[in-house]
Amino acid sequence: MRFILGAVAAFAMSTAALASELAPDAVAFTDDGVTSSLTGVAGDPAAGAETFKSRKLGNCLACHANADMSGELFHGDVGPSLDGVASRWDEAQLRAIVTNSKQIFTDETVMPGFYSLEVGQYVSEPFAGKTILTAQQVEDVVAYLGTLKE
């Protein structure tokens, strides 16, 4: 019985967390960035580091060098180095860049919008209507980037 009550409580909490997740098309971009959390839950820097370096998730190292992850292979140089990024951008700006960099830079940037449905014309059917990262993964990556100060 305790197991069933625990499972019901866990399901209720996960449902509540999903209910508070902001939809990709509801994200408010301002001159200050994206000032509100996408989930209402603080990001986890350790989980963000895993997402950041995962080739199946963020794959950020494909384009960005990051001395904090010097032990990882294949740092790219298409984008700027992320060393000290939290000294250049605040949390709201970082959240906006990760959510949809095209809203912050230009439509010509090669950086994808990780929590955007604006992903181009020729999207493979299994990925149509889906974001690259979840809202919580964006919050986790932002929390990780926030640790990269000069």
Rank of each mutant, 00 (worst) to 15 (best):
Gly84Ile: 05
Arg88Gly: 00
Asp31Trp: 03
Gly71Trp: 13
Ser81Trp: 06
Thr134Gly: 04
Ala10Trp: 08
Asp90Gly: 12
Leu18Thr: 04
Pro24Met: 09
Glu118Asn: 15
Ala92Glu: 07
Thr109Asp: 09
Ala96His: 05
Phe11His: 01
Glu150Thr: 02
Ala9Asn: 09
Arg88Cys: 00
Gly6His: 08
Val110Ser: 14
Phe3Pro: 00
Val27Gln: 02
Ser20Lys: 12
Tyr115Trp: 11
Glu91Asp: 08
Ala92Phe: 05
Glu139Arg: 01
Ala46Val: 14
Phe29Gln: 00
Ile132Trp: 03
Met1Asp: 05
Thr15Met: 11
Asn59Ala: 15
Leu133Arg: 01
Gln121Asn: 08
Tyr122Leu: 13
Leu133His: 08
Ala135Asn: 12
Thr51Ala: 15
Lys149Tyr: 03
Leu38Arg: 00
Arg55Thr: 15
Pro112Leu: 06
Phe114Ser: 01
Val119Ala: 10
Phe127Ile: 05
Pro80Met: 12
Ala47Asp: 11
Lys102Gly: 13
Pro112His: 09
Glu125Met: 06
Gln93Ile: 04
Phe29Asp: 05
Gly71Val: 04
Gly58Ser: 09
Ser37Ile: 04
Phe52Ser: 06
Asp90Arg: 06
Thr99Phe: 01
Gln103Ser: 09
Ser20Gly: 08
Asp25Glu: 14
Ser101Arg: 00
Asp90Tyr: 07
Thr131Cys: 12
Ile4Leu: 15
Ala65Asn: 10
Tyr144Leu: 03
Val34Glu: 04
Lys102Pro: 06
Leu22Ile: 15
His64Met: 07
Asn100Arg: 03
Ile104His: 04
Ala86Met: 08
Ala17Asp: 10
Glu21Lys: 09
Met69His: 14
Thr109Pro: 04
Ile4Val: 14
Met13Glu: 13
Gly146His: 02
Ile104Tyr: 05
Glu125Pro: 11
Glu125Thr: 09
Phe29Trp: 11
Pro45Ile: 05
Phe11Met: 11
Phe105Ala: 13
Asp83Lys: 04
Gly58Trp: 05
Ala23Pro: 04
Lys130Ser: 12
Leu61Cys: 11
Val34His: 02
Glu72Lys: 13
Glu91His: 00
Ser101Asp: 03
Ala86Val: 08
Gln136Thr: 06
Ser54Gly: 12
Trp89His: 14
Leu145Gln: 03
Glu118Gln: 14
Asp44Phe: 07
Leu117Glu: 07
Met1His: 12
Gly113Ile: 02
Val141Gln: 00
Asp32Leu: 02
Glu72Tyr: 13
Asn59Lys: 08
Gly76Thr: 10
Asp31Arg: 14
Arg55Gly: 15
Ser54Asn: 15
